[in-house]
């Protein structure tokens, strides 16, 4: 009879966390910052169709880094729950906090009970009527839920990016000032990122009922400059 080897719970959790962290760190990062009119989300993403940032509901956006199929499944879960809740109750009853809790539950459950943890880190952002009501919920691969103030960084190299971002960021910036700062923080001192490397969206208070809006490459280029600067190498 085969006896399973004993693995200490600490070791098992550590192995899983290492596995998830490695998966997430391979992907490129994403930042979200408050600006004067709402929340700005910027991801490093060369794909124009496989999105990291998307709309969940009138005032709520979703952003994910890590394994695409895993965070996309979570995104769909969010859209569905928000739409069903808005249909059964009212549009005003759909809020980010409840959704963030659901995500934390799912990620936590999967982390402890499934063979493989989800290799994702996600953000649920809600733009408030006033700036003080804006919310950024950052959820980690193990279900840890963090209510962040002002800025949030997801993905590989997060600490360095957060360091650069907090030294320049201000909640009173207009979009044209906030976007270059976010891009510079993502790029770091040695690289420059052009509009083609970026996926940018805002949750804007002045955008009517549906606050979410993508900024296309032309708009981003006009703010951060330079689309197609040097020819990019196909790999990364």
């Amino acid at each position: 009879m085969n006896m399973p080897f004993y693995v200490a719970p600490e070791q098992m959790m550590k192995d899983r966390a290492d596995y998830a962290r490695k998966g997430i760190a391979r992907g490129r990062a994403l930042v979200a910052v408050q600006y004067v009119d709402g929340i700005l989300l910027v991801a490093e993403n060369t794909s124009n169709t496989l999105r990291k940032i998307s709309e969940i509901y009138d005032r709520i956006a979703f952003a994910g880094v890590g394994k695409y199929n895993e965070f996309d499944q979570l995104r769909r879960f969010g859209v569905r729950n928000a739409d069903v809740k808005g249909y059964a109750y009212s549009r005003d009853d759909v809020e980010a906090r409840g959704l963030a809790n659901d995500y934390a539950q799912i990620l936590g459950q999967t982390f402890t009970h499934e063979v493989k943890p989800l290799e994702v880190e996600i953000l649920v952002a809600e733009v408030g009527v006033a700036q003080a009501d804006d919310q950024l919920f950052h959820i980690l691969y193990d279900g840890t839920l963090v209510d962040e103030k002002g800025t949030s960084v997801l993905g590989g190299d997060a600490d360095a990016i957060a360091g650069r971002l907090t030294s320049t960021w201000s909640a009173d910036d207009a979009l044209a000032a906030a976007l270059p700062k976010a891009v510079a923080a993502l790029a770091g001192p040695e690289r420059t990122l052009s509009a083609d490397d970026l996926e940018v969206a805002v949750l804007s208070r002045s955008n009517g009922r549906r606050c979410f809006q993508r900024l296309d490459h032309a708009v981003v280029a006009s703010i951060v400059g330079g689309t197609n600067v040097p020819p990019k190498s196909p790999a990364d």
Partner: peptide
């Protein structure tokens, strides 16, 4: 009527009416 996390072979797709029926809101 919370919507579950659907498995890929059981996913209602983009059809909102089908989703409502799944959660008992016909």
């Amino acid at each position: 009527m919370k919507v579950p996390l659907f498995a890929s072979d059981n996913d209602p797709g983009s059809d909102f009416s089908a989703l409502l029926r799944r959660v008992g809101l016909d």
